[in-house]
Write a protein that binds this DNA or RNA. Structure first.
Lengths: 188, 188
DNA sequence: CACTCGTGGCTAACTCAACTAGCTTTGCGG
DNA sequence: CCGCAAAGCTAGTTGAGTTAGCCACGAGTG
């Protein structure tokens, strides 16, 4: 039997792909083992179990998302940066719906997950600092922006929007509105 | 053996309570049967299985939420109505975190679920019509508002907000900002 | 070049949840 | 009082996750 050459990273990556392609409900150790061409118990040499796997997928996804947001913000500022970050956020969620959904379903109480969430939120913070916000106003504005982005992509990918208006246009309008709101946010 | 007097409604209600109290991950037929003092297979006389149960819980929760929103909006208009509806939305999600989470995890493709979602969104629509919006602007504004509310309560109940600022204050600020944004929404 | 030993794979076996089949009994309507 | 639909049950199957413990690959060393 030739070795399959698995590592935790390989397993987590495959799990992310599986979640994206077949939905987060289909992310099982059984399906994952089959995709990797390996017997199910072999996975335990690389991960601690299903819960551990989901946590790792969530952490990896948040780090990827954070990197995409950082890249989008690079070299921009103000409403320009905001629009780029928002678009990158939505693009990531649409390109990786399974990974994104896993981040939502994993409890935030875990140390590694909370840290990853904080890292992913950093670029958002940075953009809003660029709007001249600080202190409580910065926290409130960041929460508002994160809530709007998170809620929008969840509703969109979950089919929560009825109506037949293209969601992309609604998203652009929302981002424009947020941009105006943040520019006029009551500072301090 | 005396009959337990179950009906689909009783079962769904108990499932909702179970989800609220022990988390959506603990919503299993096994746990539900135990709570109801009945053997597991007996549940199949009232529901079609776990998926069906989750769908019913989601529909019931959306209807309760919709009723709460309608009540909150009654007799108010403009930003007053918006604030009341937003508060009612968040109160519901905090009081019934399990039920709320189930609505999120159930696929929106199902007929009954989509219809319930539309019913729950109606009061939000009504409030925004009161802001003088219509057509695409109304759709965009409703999506924005729903996204913000949905995202906020999910992040809040999921522990997604770090920082130690009270989330209620951030919520109030967000709603105030949304109110201003909607009043100035580019009509048509 | 042989040996060895850590590691990554395996099979076997267990638990527990969901579901199905089919039996029993309750208790309401005639 | 009786019959029968419905509501409960026990028993048994399937399939996922998990644990235990065995074995073979292959890298590093003498």
């Amino acid at each position: 039997m030739p070795r399959a050459g698995l590592t935790p990273d390989v397993v987590v990556e495959a799990a992310g792909r599986l979640a994206d392609e077949r939905g987060t409900g289909a992310l099982s150790l059984a399906a994952l083992a089959q995709v990797l061409g390996v017997a199910l118990p072999s996975l335990y040499k690389h991960i601690g179990g299903l819960d551990d796997l989901r946590r790792r997928v969530a952490v990896a996804a948040m780090d990827e998302l954070g990197a995409a947001l950082r890249d989008a913000a690079a070299g921009r500022s103000g409403s320009d940066a905001l629009a780029a970050v928002a678009a990158a956020y939505r693009d990531f969620a649409i390109a990786h719906p399974g990974r994104y959904a896993v981040t939502q379903s994993v409890a935030g109480a875990e140390e590694s997950v909370a840290a990853a969430a904080a890292r992913a939120a950093e670029p958002v913070y940075a953009v809003l600092r660029g709007f001249g916000l600080s202190g409580d106003a910065l926290i409130d504005a960041t929460r508002t922006l994160r809530a709007a982005l998170h809620g929008f992509v969840l509703l969109e990918t979950g089919g929560g929007f009825g109506m037949d208006r293209p969601t992309g246009e609604s998203f652009d309008r929302m981002v424009a509105a947020l941009s105006a709101t943040l520019a006029a946010w009551p500072a301090r």
